[in-house]
Computed example of a mutant assay.
Amino acid sequence: MQPLIETARAKVNLTLRVLGRRPDGYHDIDSVVAFADCVDTLAFAPGGDLSLTTTGPGADACGDSGDNLIIRATRALAECVPGLTLGRFSLDKHLPVAAGIGGGSADAAAALRLLATANGIVADDERLSEAARVTGADIPVCLASRACSMQGIGDELAALDLPELPCVMINPRVAVATKDVFAELGLKKGQFRVGISEVLEAVTWPKVGASADVWLDFLKGGANDLEAPALRVEPIIGDVLTVLRETDGVRLARMSGSGATCFAIYGNADDAKSAGQAIAQAHPGWWVHAGVLS
């Protein structure tokens, strides 16, 4: 039997508000999420003991395979599904790690989709969602890997009709720990960053079929609340944002997630491609991707 194959798309937070911190320590967020056309590739051969091998340019950064999110998500699903068929995973790792684009979470979500296929589990089975939720905050949104609004602790999702947005993504190959950025944000348990009226204020989303220009105007009204604390943790993020904001044709530049990956959106694919080529030539040590968000 040929191995089953899934791609794991990078997640990009186009906006990210941190509303507050719950008494249990988790942070409430409100985010517009898109997915990029840069991926890791995960193969699964059903049967036998659970294992994971990693290849590709990012393999060395993946750490202990026994504690990888792929293995943890599989074990979480096995607790929900008696007799789950396990097997051998092979990950071709290209996305940077600890980068604010959910690379490990996307890999784990791809593993859950592969296990669902191998075990005849339908895509909307609640056991998949539960395994994703208990394994990591970004894994539920990566299960479907489509544009959506994400709220709560990452578990409240609503699909969005987002057009394709030409983009450039940059990571300076500096890992940034999410916990360090949230620590720098400095919220105490039970503390809110915004008033209740702001939390309850209804969002007027662009209409179905709205153009990229309409969406860009909408996104410009947002922000990433983790950008400022991430800059204090790793100042090179400021250099990346400056480089993106100085490129021709850029319409919006912002950090994704807790960093250090930043993205820029352009009016057309040619501008994005030219910007990506110029940045890659000027900064050969950086990870640079020119493509599309959707």
Results as ranks from 00 to 15, higher is better:
1 M>D: 10
2 Q>S: 15
5 I>Q: 11
6 E>A: 14
7 T>K: 15
8 A>S: 04
10 A>P: 04
14 L>Q: 10
14 L>C: 14
16 L>H: 09
21 R>W: 09
22 R>F: 03
23 P>N: 09
24 D>A: 02
29 I>R: 02
35 F>R: 01
36 A>W: 03
38 C>V: 15
44 F>D: 08
44 F>W: 06
45 A>N: 08
46 P>S: 11
47 G>K: 02
48 G>I: 05
49 D>V: 12
50 L>P: 08
56 G>V: 14
57 P>W: 09
58 G>D: 01
64 D>P: 09
69 L>I: 13
73 A>E: 13
73 A>C: 13
75 R>A: 08
79 E>V: 04
80 C>F: 05
84 L>G: 10
86 L>P: 04
88 R>S: 15
91 L>W: 14
95 L>P: 09
95 L>A: 05
97 V>M: 15
98 A>F: 02
98 A>I: 05
99 A>L: 11
100 G>I: 09
101 I>Q: 01
107 D>T: 08
107 D>Y: 11
109 A>L: 14
111 A>Q: 06
116 A>V: 12
119 N>K: 02
125 D>H: 04
128 L>D: 09
131 A>C: 10
131 A>I: 08
133 R>H: 06
137 A>I: 02
139 I>Y: 01
140 P>F: 02
142 C>L: 03
142 C>D: 03
144 A>V: 06
144 A>M: 06
152 G>I: 04
158 A>N: 07
159 A>G: 10
160 L>M: 13
161 D>M: 13
162 L>F: 14
162 L>Q: 12
163 P>T: 07
165 L>F: 12
167 C>H: 08
170 I>D: 08
172 P>N: 07
172 P>Y: 09
172 P>D: 08
173 R>S: 15
181 V>T: 10
182 F>C: 05
185 L>H: 11
186 G>H: 11
186 G>Q: 12
191 Q>T: 09
192 F>K: 15
193 R>M: 14
197 S>G: 03
204 T>E: 15
204 T>M: 13
205 W>R: 03
207 K>M: 06
207 K>I: 03
207 K>Y: 03
208 V>N: 06
210 A>V: 06
214 V>M: 09
215 W>C: 11
217 D>Y: 02
219 L>Q: 03
219 L>H: 04
220 K>H: 12
221 G>F: 03
223 A>I: 04
223 A>Y: 00
225 D>Q: 03
232 R>H: 01
233 V>Y: 05
234 E>K: 06
237 I>H: 04
240 V>A: 12
243 V>H: 08
248 D>G: 03
249 G>M: 09
251 R>I: 11
252 L>T: 06
253 A>I: 06
253 A>P: 09
257 G>R: 01
257 G>V: 03
259 G>F: 05
260 A>Q: 01
260 A>P: 08
262 C>M: 08
264 A>N: 07
264 A>L: 11
267 G>E: 13
268 N>C: 15
268 N>A: 10
270 D>N: 14
272 A>V: 14
273 K>F: 05
274 S>E: 13
278 A>N: 13
280 A>V: 10
282 A>E: 10
283 H>W: 02
283 H>M: 07
287 W>Y: 00
288 V>K: 00
290 A>P: 06
291 G>R: 00
292 V>F: 01
294 S>V: 05
